[in-house]
Design a binder for these strands. Structure first.
Lengths: 248, 248
DNA sequence: GATTCTATCTCGCTG
DNA sequence: CAGCGAGGTAGAATC
């Protein structure tokens, strides 16, 4: 069943780590974790990924998330223990010590490769994208809306957008790149309660939530609090002419 | 530089997928993602992981999270396109279509292995563990505390623990397996506001947050609202005798 | 270093 | 299926 001896595997891992290579092993193993929580994972087939930055991943044949892992900054040791190859990863942080122990019974296959990847990833459709679009096109929030500032400090945390509507009322706007859930509405509610207790009469400050959609319960809250939901998807393409054309 | 031809790699992937194998390729590739967001990742060395459940992972040599990915349920096609091996993964859901395109310029190495892993993972130190400990040992919350119910519906969502203190006051307790942040305190505040507006006088209902620690800002809120913070770590071992011994 | 917040969060559970 | 909340969340930004 085993394509590689544990001894050969150990040597290959040792050499690979010297070269700062990323290592992938297809193995049968057991795993134990002790740290922020404690977990035990019985014997099964998994992929082990050992990255030069200390990251350790234990992937099963299903799901996107690893079944166990160590975050960057960990350091691992390994060696033969009886008829198993033991890998021990460890990391200390302010929260305490984290330990991951992997007992490898069989190594089916192994890859070691020095990976060079310094490319930045461009990402569009984030909450930051939505915010900058609304700052550039405040009429998407409401006709006549003026943005006063972003990340305005309320005392309960920074609100995404602070501005004024066409009647001169102060407005706080909360943005989400995904569907609005009740939590987002409560958050906006807190900003209004805390942020304006001294400077304004609360009833004169309006609340607006902006997102591509909103859940039913969240919409109930929006209405209960007298807020407004504005539909806007961060992924939507806005032609630069839309603004001026809509004025005509 | 390339250890395998793209043509050989394609054949190996094809065979592996027939066998429901998990596939790992060490490659040089570019990646584009269009779905819940849009991203572009220029050329670099990465590990590609293709799982039989449709999961696709693109891992760089650093960090725990993949640089790009597709979640379980995706389906992928692949083939030679010019001097590259193109892999296209796609998935449709209620939110729309997601697409991941990977253009592989070089294949350094490849693993294909049928992984069998049906083991459940035991996990300890979760919020659920903390809750059941407090239900079994209510005196850890307060001397004389009685648990009435868990997941009690408040109208603003279910509260972790509902009970009564030694004076007969109703108490809502919010649990966290990690440090309490301001959000957790606000959550408890909402439960009290909404859950007891009719049945109780709010001032007679107390709020308790239970966690291994609490942030400074969260503690300020706890005091402002007249709540109590109880220190309890879900990882702590509680000997079964602790309770009875502490009574003497 | 501690805290807060976003996320293509993922994942499981519940209606 | 939608929605909601926990997570060993991870990771970035900010203080």
């Amino acid at each position: 069943m085993s394509d590689l001896t544990l001894s050969d595997s150990e040597s290959e891992i040792r050499e690979a780590r010297k070269r700062d290579s990323t290592i992938v092993l297809a193995v049968n193993c057991e795993v134990q974790y002790d740290g922020r929580a404690n977990s035990d994972l019985g014997g099964g087939d998994r992929l082990l990924v050992l990255k030069p930055d200390g990251t350790v991943l234990v992937h099963g044949p299903e799901k996107s998330k690893p079944r166990n892992w160590m975050t960057p900054g960990a350091s691992y040791t390994f060696g033969l223990e009886g008829d198993e190859l033991a890998i021990h990863a460890e990391q200390s942080s302010s929260e305490g010590v984290e330990e991951l122990d992997i007992w490898v019974a069989d190594v089916y296959d192994i890859i070691t490769e020095r990976l060079l990847d310094d490319r930045e990833k461009s990402l569009a459709g984030t909450e930051a994208d939505l915010k900058s679009r609304l700052v550039d096109n405040p009429e998407l929030i409401e006709e006549g809306f003026r943005v006063e500032s972003t990340e305005w400090e309320t005392g309960a945390g920074p609100v995404d957008i602070f501005g004024y509507d066409s009647d001169g009322n102060a407005v706080l706007a909360e943005l989400k790149r995904r569907q609005i859930d009740p939590e987002a509405v409560h958050q906006l509610r807190r900003y209004l309660e805390v942020g304006f207790e001294d400077d304004f009469v609360e009833s004169e400050v309006r609340g607006i939530v902006v997102a591509p959609s909103i859940s039913e319960q969240a919409m109930d809250l929006v209405e209960e609090y007298g807020f407004v939901f504005v539909e806007e998807d961060p992924r939507r393409k806005v032609s630069s002419e839309t603004t001026s054309l809509s004025e005509f």
